[in-house]
Design a protein around this nucleic acid. Sequence first.
DNA 1: GCATCATGCTAACTGGAGCAAGCATACTGG
DNA 2: CCAGTATGCTTGCTCCAGTTAGCATGATGC
Lengths: 121, 121
Amino acid sequence: MSRNPLNDLGESLGDYVREQRTAAKLSLRQLSELAGVSNPYLSQIERGLKRPSAEILQQLAKGLEVSAESLYVRAGFLDAGAVSSDSGVPDVRRAIAEDPVLTARQKKTLLDIYESYVEVA
Amino acid sequence: MSRNPLNDLGESLGDYVREQRTAAKLSLRQLSELAGVSNPYLSQIERGLKRPSAEILQQLAKGLEVSAESLYVRAGFLDAGAVSSDSGVPDVRRAIAEDPVLTARQKKTLLDIYESYVEVA
DNA sequence: GCATCATGCTAACTGGAGCAAGCATACTGG
DNA sequence: CCAGTATGCTTGCTCCAGTTAGCATGATGC
């Protein structure tokens, strides 16, 4: 069984952070200062006693010089598979749907036009 | 200046969620139930009064049928540039250019419209 | 021996995320 | 004109992420 009070994902996150920190030869206090986080809190994160927010993870990633995504995946915020999902031929519908800049209305307009082109039948 | 008590990123997130929700023709309560979030809280998120955690964003993304990444970008948890360049999210311009069905003219039309949307001013 | 400094950890507190309950308005149908 | 219902919003609360202050141990140097 798991030895910590939180779920296993949290534990794996803490273990991962501690691994990265010791590998970088940083003390708890050093990393906590680099990341702008209090040192007791970092200690609790590493032992799986607390679940850090995405903002904290971002700062930790910076201090550890790893990608924020990798920490998100460990924390269960991001699906491991989803990160590098498509890789192949881009799909217009999906590209429009997932564009972070467009508004919903703009997306609908673009999709309508696109559909009118391909739905010739 | 900004009309809300939180930062502009939070506002843009709320606006984005509301756009997606109305575009999907969902009421506040409907989406709140789909996402497993209380309806007053969703209301406050949309108006930029609260900053939701990554977990809540994940659930909202599910209810809205958009990628969690897109919400993370809006929330400032993920860097917009990093995502699009990192092969995670498809690029609209590329997807249009490589679509095998569209004619050259149709591609130009779609691209022109898309550019008009993203060229913010 | 004892100061001093770094290490990680515990205790007690504060702010705000997220909730249940209820309010105000508008729109039906009888 | 009033009951029923759906909309979004306000209020007041609970709980936990994240803080500051301080503790225990171990390594140095005098």
